[in-house]
Nucleic acid binder design. Structure first.
Lengths: 264, 264
DNA sequence: TTCTCTGTTTGATGTATATCAATGAGTTTT
DNA sequence: AAAACTCATTGATATACATCAAACAGAGAA
């Protein structure tokens, strides 16, 4: 029903120098990189730069780094030095209570920026875990700030990224505080499909990268409730679900269930 | 048991030119202002600036504005042009669903910055409502960005403020997604008292500026549950409550109830 | 193939919190 | 001072979701 690998591999096709790792013998996971010919540019970098500016911007990103499925890009308490732009793969960010409860605070995909939580205290305040083998661009925050002072358009872009994250979290608070299970899951699916569509994927079919438990953690419900709500949607003919393969049959019905907040 | 007005009036004592409003005849709510002698400086501005830098920073803040209790500092959809630093009074920020449900996304007090939600789309994405008569400093975002490019210390400060908001919201997501009513209220009270203490108020006694319903909206529970939980804490000898007056008798017990996340 | 493991689905039952309802306390208006 | 209003408290009952439990499905490993 859905090609399980299409989402990831579309971006694995990006080329970079074959000998890149050779210049960083101490860390084979580090890879040299240039934004100016990255096809995710519009997703993670400001638009409307001239050639000179693009060349300078290349210096923001120093190298790349690979993270295996289940691996931590960073963990709570790690010193913060850099932001990361996701190139391929999916991540979750999460915080934990002392007694081991986990709250997923977001799912991130290609082109999205991760690590903003670390700026305030120079330490990361959450964990970033790869949901599948992933590759990120390393953007040392010193560089970002330095170039931001030089390029107002980059400065504005950085501010917008942070503001977008604040607004996104406002929306999650609304979900968690005011909405019922069906509304939460509808909102989640609509958001996911919208972001995938912006990356050139189908508006209707996709593969979930996370478990029912992780979805539940994000949406403040138990995995059984997530599963039951999927089944309910399926019985109602709104979606087709088979394990992690999802096909949206009736997006309008989903939108109706998710009484959309005026603030989106 | 608690002096209901102390919190507000402590900051009303700040002086500013008596004839300030006269220079803005078109809008008597606008008041000229200087940060360099504002006693909230350390709360809303970076520390470690020399005299010249301070003078320049004064230009970030153009004027002040008063908002009456219940008045909107800004509303969802309003064009975004400026950040606001709260000088006196308390605010809530909230978002609404189409069908009228409200989610309070935060309570803000003196020295805190409000309006970051507007940067991403040049429109405000939430409402800011004064919980009591309030006064804010207007900081046109153009000015903030311009001076940020000039002063790395201000730039870093702005980034930290935005990052802090992201981390705060992560914590609220944890509350809403994983915690029970008692844990939520304990966390809320501890956070409030900590912020008030940082402003020179008592660590134990304070006056709530918001209704049970607003607390409930913030914490994802109904006003009756908020009230019952207050009563429970009171019966257990952890706090004393009378209407909006709260006295914390046993802060350790509160901390124990609020199984603190490792991420704070 | 069969075994094992992890993740998913579905059913039966329990519970924290919501809902409905009435009373009470403070504050402002008349 | 009484009336009218908003906000808070408390009780009785309802319910959405959690919890407990068992079966099931797909992916690797032996």
């Amino acid at each position: 029903m859905v090609d399980a690998n299409a989402q990831s591999e579309a971006y694995n096709a990006i080329t970079y120098p074959e000998n890149a790792t050779a210049s960083y013998p101490m860390n084979p996971e580090m890879i040299k990189v240039a934004c100016s010919n990255c096809n995710l540019r519009e997703l993670c970098m400001p638009v409307g730069l001239n050639h000179d500016e693009m060349v300078k911007l290349d210096h923001v990103v120093s190298t790349r780094k690979r993270v295996k499925q289940g691996g931590h890009l960073f963990s709570h308490g790690d010193p913060f030095t850099t932001l990361y732009a996701i190139r391929t793969g999916y991540f979750k960010t999460c915080v934990n209570t002392e007694d081991g409860r986990e709250q997923v605070t977001g799912f991130q995909m290609a082109g999205e920026i991760i690590g903003l939580d670390g700026i305030v205290s120079d330490k990361h305040n959450c964990n970033a875990v790869a949901l599948e083998d992933a590759e990120v661009c390393i953007m040392p925050f010193e560089n970002v700030e330095e170039l931001s002072r030089e390029f107002p358009v980059l400065q504005r872009h950085v501010h917008k990224i942070m503001s977008r994250e604040i607004v996104r979290e406002n929306g999650v608070m609304m979900l968690l505080g005011n909405m019922r299970a069906e509304e939460r899951l509808a909102a989640f699916l609509l958001n996911l499909v919208q972001r995938l569509h912006a990356r050139g994927f189908s508006q209707s079919e996709f593969v979930l990268r996370m478990t029912r438990e992780e979805i539940g953690s994000y949406l403040g419900m138990k995995l059984e409730t997530v599963s039951r709500t999927f089944s309910k949607f399926s019985e109602d003919g709104i979606i087709e679900v088979k394990q992690r393969n999802v096909k949206i049959i009736n997006p309008e019905a989903l939108k109706q269930i998710y009484n959309p907040q005026t603030c989106t």
